[in-house]
Amino acid sequence: MRSALALPRIDLVLCTRCGVCVSLCPGHAVEMADEGPHFARPLDCTYCAECEATCPAGAIRCEYAIVWAEDPPSPGGDRCTTS
């Protein structure tokens, strides 16, 4: 699954399906499915990193590239949201 919007990465191997990310997402962007959590409403994700901070399994990563202002947009902006 690919999205035009950069989203936190969820490692479904590490994920224990505890649902903390679903409960605590301020934008209610995450839902639990059979295979694990996913961004059901990606536009509601503000990339606040609350899910990364609270995931007990360390299964969620909000990654940042550090760039100069004159750089072109990162090609990584269009990428998988789960792995």
Partner: peptide
């Protein structure tokens, strides 16, 4: 840290979490 690690036109870029 931001000055030392800001990258220009490098693909793939090194990415960092806040942790």
């Amino acid at each position: 840290f931001l000055l030392d690690n800001a990258e220009k036109d490098q693909v793939p870029r090194r990415v960092w979490t806040q942790d």
